[in-house]
């Protein structure tokens, strides 16, 4: 029983991080209806950002998160203005291959600058790397990352629901035409959404680096994980992202305990099964999976 509780708690910790890693993907999909296949690479860049911040300046990524956020917000805006702007009303296929092309370019850029080495950092001094909680040992970095995830996810929900800009983003995501008729400039909203989505992804990478290894192709794993979270929780739903992240984290941890060899395949098998049974996710917009942008 204790093992089970321990597994569920560490699964939830992992899941919180997964949710944060997936939020940017879902936000961008929800608003611009673009599935960003380079999402994992932005996360990978975030991990490197955390790594170099710590290695070069000694600032650990938790304190450095605001810097990463600002830098990645700008990166996201450039990503939209420089590339995605040209694909936004184009066939899906164009978006798929443009983001895949970017993913190839970014992966190899990382390879070029930082080689294929596996890198990670230690943020906690000796003896503080795990927290004691009612007889359970929890890795401090995971707990902090989980805290970051929850704060950011809740902040995003509040932003979307309570602020004028947030409402405008929501409006565009629900009905672009109607939003335009209400005088919302979709270009501005798209820039903002890409900026925000990539900023969150960058921060997610930064707080992930103490507990995961960074290497150039790490994004391939995370983009699929993020996609599983999004499908599990529902496309276009931020609350769903939390549920999906926690769900996947717990299922993966439990499954990994039962069959460690299949742990890696579990998210994908889950994804295929889930899509077969409930294609719009647990909390998603019904019919979103049938969405074809033409």
């Amino acid at each position: 029983m204790d093992t089970l509780i321990q597994l569920i708690i560490s699964g939830a910790l992992l899941g919180g991080v997964y949710a944060l890693a997936a939020l940017g993907l879902n936000l961008i999909f929800g608003v611009a209806k673009v599935i960003n296949f380079a999402h994992g690479e932005f996360l990978m860049l975030g991990m490197y950002a955390g790594y170099w911040l710590m290695t070069l300046t000694g600032i650990n990524p938790y304190y450095g998160a605001p810097f990463i956020a600002v830098a990645f917000f700008l990166l996201g805006a450039v990503f939209y203005l420089g590339i995605m702007r040209f694909t936004i009303y184009r066939p899906e296929l164009t978006q798929v291959f443009v983001t895949l092309g970017l993913s190839i370019a970014l992966q190899n850029l990382a390879l070029m600058f930082w080689q294929a080495d596996y890198r990670t950092i230690q943020t906690m001094p000796q003896g503080m790397s795990s927290l004691q909680l009612g007889g359970m040992h929890l890795p401090t970095d995971r707990v902090i990352a989980f805290g970051f995830a929850m704060v950011i996810l809740i902040a995003v929900i509040i932003f979307l629901r309570k602020t004028f800009t947030g409402r405008a983003i929501e409006a565009v995501s629900q009905d672009l035409m109607a939003a335009q008729l209400m005088g919302i400039n979709p270009q501005k909203i798209f820039v903002l959404t890409f900026g925000l989505g990539i900023a969150i992804t960058g921060v997610a990478g930064g707080v992930l680096i103490p507990s995961f290894y960074a290497f150039p192709s790490v994004g391939t794993f995370f983009v699929l994980v993020a996609f599983v979270v999004v499908v599990l929780g529902g496309l276009g739903s931020v609350t769903g992202t939390i549920v999906g992240g926690l769900g996947l984290g717990i299922i993966e941890t439990l499954g990994g305990y039962v069959a460690p060899d299949l742990k890696e395949a579990l998210p994908f098998v889950l994804l295929i099964l889930l899509l077969a049974i409930r294609p719009h996710g647990l909390l998603g917009i019904k019919g979103a999976e049938k969405e074809t942008l033409k």
């Binding site: 291959f97 443009v98 895949l100 092309g101 970017l102 993913s103 190839i104 370019a105 970014l106 992966q107 190899n108 850029l109 990382a110 390879l111 070029m112 150039p216």
Partner: peptide
């Protein structure tokens, strides 16, 4: 990796 960076951008 440089050649694939260029390849990706060309794409």
């Amino acid at each position: 990796g440089l050649h694939l960076v260029i390849y990706g951008i060309a794409l």
